[in-house]
Design a protein around this nucleic acid. Sequence first.
DNA 1: GTACTTTGTGGGCAGATGTGGGGAATAGTG
DNA 2: CACTATTCCCCACATCTGCCCACAAAGTAC
Lengths: 154, 154
Amino acid sequence: MPSFKGQYEHSVDNKGRVAFPAKLRKLVSPAAQDQFTILRGQEPCLYLYPQDHWEEVEQKLSRVNSFSKNGRTVIRNFLRFAEDVSLDKQNRISLPAHLMDYSGIDSTALFIGTVDRIEIWSPARLNDFDADLSDEYFHELFEKVMGDESENRE
Amino acid sequence: MPSFKGQYEHSVDNKGRVAFPAKLRKLVSPAAQDQFTILRGQEPCLYLYPQDHWEEVEQKLSRVNSFSKNGRTVIRNFLRFAEDVSLDKQNRISLPAHLMDYSGIDSTALFIGTVDRIEIWSPARLNDFDADLSDEYFHELFEKVMGDESENRE
DNA sequence: GTACTTTGTGGGCAGATGTGGGGAATAGTG
DNA sequence: CACTATTCCCCACATCTGCCCACAAAGTAC
């Protein structure tokens, strides 16, 4: 199972459609059938999961106890901003309006492969977000995350 | 069995009818035959179960001990506010008046897919309800679901 | 280089979807 | 039996979605 990597910038047309990067498409398992789930990310970006990986997320969700109030709150606020999307005949996805709002994406979308999912950013947002990330700090983080096994859940 | 997800806002006309979101409809099992059961939710919202999932709920109900007072109270007050509804020829459901009162829904209904059922909220109510749900708390919840295996029990 | 294929972008169009209202059939009420 | 409410079906219309075609740009083969 090859992992997603690389970044690809594409323009969003006035119907909210973006071409899905061809290189990433080649990495999507045929099992996913060009079906994806798109949702709010933790950062101000979107997550795009091919169907097969999304199922693992749902596995986790299904273990949340829906008989507790907190459990229901988790499920509700998680699934609320998730939607199924699929590629059209031109290999595009169309971004739901509320997710474009959330992520600040308007005319350009930046796809970033991150192992088992794909992040989609507004280029400007990502810039702002990374503005305070100095090179030195990044290297420090890098070593921290990659270095110690016990630390890499962040 | 794909799970319900996403939120969809539709207007309620003066006869109490709402369009059932097309994307959710595609996820309803054909076995459910466009038949649903609608009832009071635990939060100030409504639950909408496709018939096939409702049957599972009834299974559970049937295992509640009806020879105990508590058992009878639970069953009575649960079923009291439940009603069968089905889609009309325009794919709408009509909301029973007493459930609109309970949920505070008037001119707009917000459908939220939550795995095996669909919640229907008054948008304003949901806002109030989530008012004390800070972003940080949400992210914490989020990580519980997305994050570490051992953490996702709630 | 040139020809050819793949990829990305835009717009037109048909059908699906969401919204509102009229009116017949049905049930409830005094 | 009226009379009222309710329910459901139909029609009309605006909007949106996904499909198709067309073409430009980029990449590949020769």
